[in-house]
Design a protein around this nucleic acid. Structure first.
Length: 647
DNA sequence: GGCAGCCGCGCG
DNA sequence: AAAGCGCGCGGCTGCC
């Protein structure tokens, strides 16, 4: 036993006596009763006295120890923390001066420096380390032990940038997500669980000041204290409500997701310029034609003005048939409505104009502005489990909505000497539906590696699967997917036309839905059962036990379990993938996740091995969530120099 | 000038 | 009789 272990043991004994966090805090999370009324003096925050003797911990009362000396930091890190008890951690970052005005300064690790690291393991005391002065090395005893933070991926990424890999850390935001879905900030979580009102005013203050104010230091300390206080409350709720499996998926996914954000996507900016020049020419031409049609006084980007204009000039017979917007009585000018009236001369130019306008607006210079000045790459933010169903979200920019056109996806290319590797799950939602509903005919088809669209087409047409034509198979796709959404006949008819270019009258759609349910009766029974139960309990559950609130029982009770469970498969896949990458020693970086698709950037020489590894990881991800899954034809992978090529 | 709701559209 | 799921984001519009 070395010196450090001895010291830790000593501290541990001391800590176990009387310094356990108290767990009696009032909470309305998961409680059947309404929240209690706020007490009068909850908001009192006493100023910290750095040398006061700790009193019995009460609401938000703790001392703050601010450390600027590296030897003192090392001594504290070694002696004052128990390596077996989770430490509440938080960091404050400062903008690097040369990127001060960049919108991501202070947030992106590449544009920031860690200023403070706060650590709390007893309710009476918080340590605040001034990192530029102490360095991070003295804090290794803290950083190698169990930690918890709010939105811990932030801490993870900045420490990673400083050369410290923290692959496991608890996150109070994700704990909340596993219980209730969505995201929550520390202020709201504190209000919900502790019924305390806190101010986040100092969050955006200048953390690069040589002398930080006592208010800044107090603020920083408080967040670590809160996290330490919230953690045991959330943990017991997760255990009580049996949400650990969902939470563990989220927790384990943090490290791979953080690295994906940190790596970013390579982006071919010069090709982007050429592409946009071309599209802008098309847009200008379309603009001239539309202007000629509607006159110079109508703003082409204003649907309100276009609607008013068309109302004035169009034949009343046409106007009567024209669909209206949801609220208000404007003409609906979405793609479907406009395409219905392309035979009208003044309407026709609108289709092309809208398309080019969208491309320029959403995928033009905006995309260039998202290139990180340090890495030259695009680093979006992913919301882990952030969609209501538990799927990923992606923002700043949203790389999950890049247009399909190859020319756009080709912009996401591999740097020299590297390759892009793409794999997606084939029909994952249909497979998940089959397993959740235990629909034996569907499961049998997947077991035999059969084509489910063909099978559905056969029962729709009342013929043997071998006789199904390409046309008939195409018509079956929207039926299969429509079922997942709980579509009605009108909806299916529209969907078939818009997304698959398939003509299906509502009457035919109705027949097709009936044929589907005759062929796969367990799906119908499962759907009805979900609807009934959701109408009573107002929630549904995914395979791993995520509970999701349902507002519209007919559609959502069918769709949420499917979409949510498929999301869990993706989480399991990236966890497995990260493990296998580490074990293989290959040069593989994850660069994008699009719901059922993973994009990697790999060393060219590793591409073929990486492809096998990726397929294996995705299959194992599926098996972690659905051990009973049939995996024939489950994953389709490809290699190329760009995202567009690899697909 | 900031904010929220609406509309519309890209993706799965 | 009704019943198309989940996102992020941009421009417009009306309101404070």
């Amino acid at each position: 036993m070395n010196k450090l272990e001895l010291l830790l043991k000593k501290v541990r004994n001391r800590n176990t006596e009387s310094r356990r966090p108290h767990l009696e805090a009032a909470s309305n999370l998961g409680s059947a009763t309404k929240g209690t009324t706020p007490r009068q003096n909850d908001t009192i925050v006493r100023p910290a006295q750095s040398c006061a003797e700790p009193a019995a911990p009460t609401e938000m009362e703790f001392t703050v120890k601010y450390i600027t000396d590296s030897e003192e930091a090392a001594a504290i890190a070694e002696t004052e923390f128990d390596s077996e008890l989770s430490i509440g951690v938080d960091i404050e970052t400062m903008k690097m001066s040369q990127y001060k005005s960049h919108s991501r300064a202070g947030l992106s690790p590449h544009l920031s420096r860690i200023r403070l690291l706060q650590a709390c393991q007893t309710l009476d005391k918080v340590y605040v380390f001034d990192i530029p002065k102490t360095g991070l090395e003295p804090l290794m005893p803290i950083l190698t032990g169990p930690m918890v933070a709010h939105n811990a991926r932030f801490e993870m990424s900045h420490l990673y940038h400083s050369g410290i890999e923290i692959s496991q850390i608890d996150c109070t935001m994700l704990m909340y997500n596993a219980l209730r879905g969505g995201t929550i900030n520390l202020k709201d979580l504190t209000k919900q669980l502790l019924d305390l009102d806190i101010s986040k005013e100092e969050q955006a203050s200048d953390w690069s000041l040589t002398e930080l104010s006592s208010s800044q230091i107090q603020y920083a300390a408080r967040d670590a204290w809160l996290v330490f206080r919230l953690y045991p409350i959330l943990k017991s709720k997760l255990e009580e409500q049996q949400k650990m499996k969902v939470y563990e998926l989220l927790r384990e996914a943090q490290f791979p997701v953080m690295k994906m954000e940190y790596n970013g996507c390579h982006f071919d900016a010069s090709t982007h310029w050429l592409l946009m020049d071309r599209i802008k020419e098309d847009l200008e031409a379309a603009k001239i034609r539309l202007k000629a049609a509607v006159g110079p006084n109508v703003s082409l980007t204003s649907n309100k003005q276009l609607s008013d204009h068309y109302k004035k000039v169009l034949d009343p017979k046409i106007l009567k048939k024209w669909p209206r917007t949801e609220k208000g009585d404007d003409l609906c000018l979405d793609k479907r409505a406009v395409q219905k009236f392309t035979h009208v001369e003044v309407v026709e130019p609108l289709v092309r104009y809208k398309r080019f306008q969208t491309l320029v607006q959403n995928f033009g210079s905006k995309l260039l502005s998202d290139i990180n000045p340090v890495t030259g790459r695009i680093h979006p933010e992913y919301g882990l489990g952030a969609a209501k169903t538990g799927r990923f979200t992606c923002s700043k920019p949203n790389l999950q909505q890049i247009p399909h056109e190859k020319e756009f996806r080709d912009l996401f290319s591999a740097p020299n000497g590297r390759k892009i590797l793409v794999a997606d799950y084939s029909q994952i939602e249909l497979r998940v539906l089959a397993m959740l509903a235990k629909e034996l005919t569907m499961l049998e088809a997947y077991r035999n590696g059969e084509d489910l669209h063909r099978l559905t087409a056969a029962s729709m047409a009342g013929i043997p699967p071998d006789d199904v034509s390409g046309e008939q198979r195409r018509a079956a796709k929207p039926v299969n997917f429509g079922i997942i959404f709980g579509m009605g006949s009108q909806g299916l008819s529209n969907h078939a036309r818009d997304k698959y270019n398939v003509v299906m009258t509502p009457r035919e759609a109705k027949k097709n839905i009936q044929a589907f349910f005759e062929k796969y009766p367990a799906v119908e029974a499962w759907g009805n059962n979900n609807k009934k139960s959701a109408a009573v309990y107002r929630f549904v559950e995914t395979k791993m036990g995520r509970k999701i609130r349902v507002d519209k029982p007919h559609t959502q009770s069918r769709n949420y379990p499917v979409q949510g469970s498929a999301g869990e498969v993706m989480l399991a896949a990236i966890i497995e993938l990260d493990r296998e990458i580490a074990a293989s020693g290959l040069d593989i970086k994850m660069v994008n996740i699009i719901h059922d698709e993973i994009v990697l950037e790999v060393a060219a020489t590793d591409a073929e091995q990486a492809k096998d590894l990726l397929e294996r990881a995705m299959i194992n991800g599926m098996l972690r969530v659905f051990p009973e899954a049939h995996t024939t034809g489950l994953v389709e992978a490809g290699v190329g120099d760009t995202w567009g090529e690899a697909k």
